[in-house]
């Protein structure tokens, strides 16, 4: 790659983005377009196209770059407006409409199936406890434990595969992974109980729990978004509407107040317990809780805030 053709792309992009207020989003877009164009130019040059012609082709193939920029500018404006205006009656109505439009009813087959599985799991648990109680043979205990673990896994996997109003279903393999990990975790707990009857099971149980932990960690780390767009849009609208996000100083003050209130309440509680006994001392904790709630309310909804905000807007 020569530098001449490089400067060609760079100059083109600089021109296209010239005079725009560069925010992080636009900077990102420019960098992305630049790297993709470089790849395209490299490909063309590999086919024996002259550098200048390659750059010209890449620019031509890009299409109308101002249109993309225009879109992104409009997008950021929209976002900031929603942030400053806050929740209006219109957006609330919109959210309600979105919820109604996206309502998903649980499938009857799934509901009956999970209820049945739960009943089986419960029966298995009861039998398991009974068998374990009389210190009988571990074989039936293992059998019931296995049934219980399987039911748990099946319910988990099946539930995750259901589409809900807020979430898309999880892909089959991932759901099965969660189910297997859940089953393994339950299996381990039961194995630990059965361990009274034999150490071999305990060793097996430890391996199972290790597998379950690793499985959960892997699934959790690789988990991606499955929220539906309307839920995300709603979260965006409500984001940073509460006082603590808008005013970190208030949040810090509240944290210190909380610590002070509870330290005091617990100290008084301990003191009263030793001097006057349990009958009275619990009142200290109750007072602490009431005080905490009052402070929380004062912090979230300060007096005269509405008027002040009104004044600031005008």
């Amino acid at each position: 790659m020569s530098s001449a053709e490089h400067s060609n792309i760079h100059r083109y992009l600089d021109d296209a983005f010239a005079g725009l207020p560069m925010n992080a989003e636009l900077q990102d877009l420019k960098e992305e377009i630049r790297s993709n164009m470089q790849s395209r130019v490299a490909e063309l040059e590999g086919q024996g196209v002259a550098p200048a012609a390659a750059a010209a082709t890449a620019i031509d193939e890009l299409g109308d770059v101002r249109a993309i920029i225009g879109d992104s500018g409009a997008g950021t404006n929209e976002g900031s407006n929603a942030g400053s205006n806050g929740r209006t009656a219109g957006t609330v109505a919109e959210h309600l409409a979105a919820h109604a439009a996206n309502k998903v009813r649980p499938r009857p087959g799934f509901v009956t199936g999970t209820v049945l599985l739960s009943v089986i799991a419960l029966a298995a648990l009861l039998l398991f406890v009974l068998v374990l109680g009389d210190h009988g043979s571990p074989a039936p205990a293992v059998l019931f434990g296995f049934a219980l673990a399987m039911c748990t896994g099946a319910i988990t996997a099946w539930s995750l595969q259901q589409e809900t109003s807020q979430n898309y279903p999880l892909p089959r393999r991932r759901a099965l992974g969660y189910g297997a990990a859940a089953a393994a975790a339950v299996g381990l707990c039961l194995c630990a109980l059965v361990a009274v009857a034999g150490t071999g099971l305990l060793v097996a149980g430890i391996f199972v729990v290790l597998g379950a932990t690793v499985g959960f960690i892997r699934l959790g780390l690789s988990q991606t978004n499955r929220r539906k767009p309307w839920v995300r849009a709603m979260a965006r609208d409500y984001q940073a509407q509460d006082r603590f996000t808008q005013d970190p100083v208030a949040a810090a003050r509240f944290g210190i107040y909380t610590a002070a209130i509870w330290i005091l309440a617990i100290a008084v509680f301990i003191w009263l317990t030793f001097t006057l006994g349990w009958g009275i001392s619990w009142l200290a904790l109750l007072t602490g809780l009431a005080l905490f709630l009052v402070v929380l309310a004062r912090m979230l909804f300060p007096a005269g805030e509405a008027e002040r905000r009104q004044a600031k807007r005008e």
């Binding site: 589409e163 979430n167 898309y168 279903p169 999880l170 892909p171 991932r174 988990q223 991606t224 978004n225 499955r226 929220r227 539906k228 767009p229």
Partner: peptide
């Protein structure tokens, strides 16, 4: 990278 929501859509 596609998300689970993306796969469903």
């Amino acid at each position: 990278r596609i998300t689970d929501a993306g796969r469903a859509v």
